[in-house]
């Protein structure tokens, strides 16, 4: 079992399925089990792809909602 911080809340989590996890890793947790360690390099690649998109067209921004993400 390992101690995992969920934005500051600490919970005991089983690493039975992620034996490779080391202290400091980010893990994806479901019902008390870590199911994967988050791949830093892949996360950066995804963000890089997002950055390479064409700049926004003005007409589409006006419809953007003011929800929690915005």
């Amino acid at each position: 079992m390992a101690r995992v911080s969920f934005g500051g809340v600490i919970k005991e989590v089983s690493l039975a399925y992620t034996p490779e996890a080391v202290p400091g890793d980010y893990v994806l947790v479901h019902v008390g089990f870590a199911l994967n360690t988050v791949d830093e390099e892949e996360a950066q690649k995804t963000l890089e792809l997002l950055r390479q998109l064409e700049p926004a067209g003005a007409e589409t921004i006006d419809d953007a909602p003011g929800g929690e993400a915005a």
Binding site: V38, A43, L47, L50, L53
Partner: peptide, 21 residues
């Protein structure tokens, strides 16, 4: 980490524009 970057509203608008295009 890994949550905030994937909720960035500016990036969402760019993605939305790319989708429209």
């Amino acid at each position: 980490k890994y949550l905030d970057e994937f909720r960035d509203p500016a990036a969402a608008r760019e993605l939305s524009a790319a989708l429209h295009a």
